[in-house]
Computed example of a mutant assay.
Amino acid sequence: KPGKCRLLAVLTVFVLMILFITLSFSVVVPSLLDSIRQFIDSLTDYSSTLGRYINYLSDAIGLSPSQSETLITQLDLFPSISKAVQQYLPRIADMGMDVVKFLMNFLIAMAAAAYILLDKEKLLMGLQKLNYSLFSTDAANYLTLYSRDVQHVFEQYIVGNLIDSLIVGLITYVGCLLMGFPYAPMFAFIVGVTNVIPVFGPFLGAIPVIIILLLIKPWYAVMFAIFILILQQIDGNVLKPIILGDKLGISGFWILFSVSVGGSLFGILGMFLGVPVFALIYAGIRDLAEMRLKEKNIHLEEKAGT
């Protein structure tokens, strides 16, 4: 019956989401933690490999054995990482209250989401009435138009980018397994998470993985570099256009600009959110300009002039 369709659709979405979260925590998280544990246990061996690399480099540039040993001692890289990890692990127990708060907020958010989905039309009509009752017709029209831009950016970029990164992470996991790399879950997690960052994300994810593989087998690092280069070409030319489309309305220059400014101001989060925030600012200015030009009955040609 028509009245039951919305309820069934909402229940289906929530069941699928709960199954996805359960699968992630039961399969992905344990394998990821196991890879991290194995990596930490092997830090001593990797430290020795790094020492050999430094000795080769020292011989190439003419450093004496004592100077190279001093350099290795001063680096103190892997012992520092291991010590930092060991000091951080006991703090996990202190996160219990934060986990409880997160679960409570999650349940409240899910209940709110269910009500919003069930009463979507009524809520939208209420917002429209409030919009046109508080503001002038022109301002209300502008806010209505801009709200569609907001919806479009969130659907096309944020949600689509997360889906694209999930697919890239899964492909990386399968690729690492086929090539026989260790720590496949950890590598896939690094590549998938960093892939949400436009332009610089693929490089940020590939560099630490290549460094780790260099310490294991240099040939592994070369294989992974070739694999990630091919994967990023497929992602940029096939996956992203299919999932995201080319509808953000901003050029590659503005994407690079927004990522750079967002990263310099707010770090990794700014690099991720810089593009959609700038796209919303750009869309707001564009909509305002189009409305003003329409009010003035001005039509601009591609060439200069009206």
Rank of each mutant, 00 (worst) to 15 (best):
P202F: 03
I216Y: 11
I197H: 05
G192I: 04
F181I: 03
V191F: 09
I190T: 13
I207S: 14
P185C: 12
V199C: 09
Y183W: 12
V191R: 06
G205A: 03
I228F: 02
L213E: 03
P202K: 04
F189P: 00
L215A: 12
Y183D: 06
I228A: 09
I212W: 02
P198E: 12
A221Q: 08
V191T: 14
L214M: 14
F181D: 08
P218D: 10
A206M: 11
F200W: 01
I212V: 15
I211E: 09
F189G: 05
T194R: 02
G192P: 03
I197C: 11
L215Y: 05
P218N: 13
I230V: 14
Q233P: 00
L215H: 10
A188H: 05
F227I: 08
L213K: 10
I207R: 09
M186F: 13
L213T: 09
L215T: 10
L204H: 03
P182W: 03
P218S: 14
G205N: 10
A221E: 01
L214S: 14
G205V: 02
I210M: 13
Y220T: 02
L229T: 15
L204I: 12
P182E: 11
P208Q: 07
F187A: 12
L229Y: 04
A184E: 11
L204Y: 01
F189T: 15
P218A: 15
P202Y: 03
P198D: 11
N195G: 01
V191W: 01
L231T: 04
V222N: 09
I197D: 07
V199Q: 11
F200K: 12
F224T: 02
P198H: 06
F189C: 14
Q232W: 00
M223G: 00
L229M: 11
Y183I: 06
Q232R: 05
I212T: 13
I197W: 02
V222M: 09
N195K: 10
I207H: 07
P185N: 08
I230M: 13
A221Y: 00
I197R: 04
L229I: 08
I228H: 03
N195L: 00
I230T: 09
Q232D: 13
I210V: 14
P202V: 04
F227C: 06
P185T: 14
L204V: 09
F187G: 07
L214W: 01
M186C: 04
I211D: 06
P198Q: 10
V191N: 08
P208Y: 04
I211P: 00
A188N: 07
F187V: 09
A188F: 01
I210A: 15
F187H: 10
F187M: 15
I207N: 05
L213N: 09
A206T: 11
W219S: 14
Q232L: 00
I228R: 03
G201M: 07
